[in-house]
Amino acid sequence: MRIDVQNLTHIYNEGQTDEVTALDDVSFTVGEGSITGIIGHTGSGKSTLIQHMNGLLKPSSGKIFADGTDITSKDVSMPEIRRKIGLVFQYPEYQLFEETVAKDIAFGPKNLGMSDAEIEKRVHTAMSLTDLDYEKFAVKSPFELSGGQKRRVAIAGVLAMEPEVLILDEPAAGLDPASHRSMMELVRRLNTEHNTTIVLVSHNMDDVAEYCTDVIVMDDGKIFLSGTPREVFRHSSELESKGLGLPFGQCLIREMNRQGADISGDSVLSGEDAAEAVLRWLEEKKC
């Protein structure tokens, strides 16, 4: 599914003394089958933006089209939109409520009015996708799990609705390195194997560089930069001036150049890219 955001503006507490323009004339497209990363400093409007993309917030002005359907209009069917566009919030583990993990995951499909057999099937699929062993976890209380396991359950709860677009707000924040990796691998797998379009909000530049096909940089409610990761991270000094970091490889090359090297590494992103660039540079120096 393709999402077109057009001139989106959102003002919190409009007309009151404490009004905040959280989004200011934002336009972009999330291409079908893409993994679109959204980065930006704290308070730049990322969470506000994604809540518009499945109709949880209504814009002050502007429109959003999902495969051509205007989801900001009044006559659109909200359950339909919520089924097609799944949203996983920041720290979703605090939204679990059912007695058992399986029941909690079934909450979404149940709200969509599916048959018991279909729900059962979807719970199984969602749990295996998120690496939750059905035998072990299905009848456990979600409140007895560890933070990382809870997060998997919460994500499984959204996956069980089998959305065409999955929006994730910092899914890997606060996880240990191994869980972090497997979370990002899950995102990639959903994208490649299930053809799910992904929108990923992240503060981790390495993840964005490695997994995303497109990147949008937000700053104070506006789009500051957009393009492929290579295009975006080329603007390293602009990004740093906005309080954002750079991928590891880019940092390394910059530091080496600062200390006297002259490596051409504008399009370097990951550690591997950097290693290649350094080796190439050493080759050139030898002859």
Partner: peptide, 13 residues
């Protein structure tokens, strides 16, 4: 507000 939105995202009404 946050929890309400999260459950609405899962189709709660």
């Amino acid at each position: 507000d946050k929890i309400m939105k999260a459950q609405q995202a899962r189709g709660a009404d």
